[in-house]
């Protein structure tokens, strides 16, 4: 069922926001095809009546009380920022959608 083409890889790279070089696209296309055919066997193992396990240790209703804690100062928040204006993170122009 695997049908990995270079277009598939380019689409996935766009979804994942990674700008691949044409060489990387080619390499990844063959690697991904090989990997996908290797992992496809998971389909053999399961049937519809097997429930999925998302968490290895089952728990539920894990929550906290509605209390404020652990806040950072804006200085701490911005400490690792590539660019900021002193209180907010700065990014280059966003095209497309009006906010």
């Amino acid at each position: 069922m695997s049908d990995i083409t270079e277009d598939t890889v380019r689409h996935l790279a766009n979804l994942a926001r990674i700008a691949l070089t044409p060489e990387e696209v080619t390499t990844l296309t063959s690697e991904l095809a090989a990997i996908v055919s290797a992992v496809e066997k998971v389909n053999e193992a399961v049937s519809a009546d097997v429930p999925a396990t998302s968490h290895p240790i089952p728990m539920e209703n894990v929550w906290r009380e509605d209390v404020v804690a652990d806040e950072l100062t804006s200085e701490q928040a911005l400490t690792g920022a590539p660019d900021h204006d002193g209180s907010r993170f700065r990014v280059t122009a966003i095209l497309g959608e009006e906010a």
Binding site: M1, V39, E40, V42, A45, P51, A52, T53, S54
Partner: peptide, 13 residues
């Protein structure tokens, strides 16, 4: 379903 979903079922097995 084919990939992530099945993998989570394998986890159960």
């Amino acid at each position: 379903d084919a990939y992530y979903g099945s993998a989570q079922k394998v986890r159960t097995l």
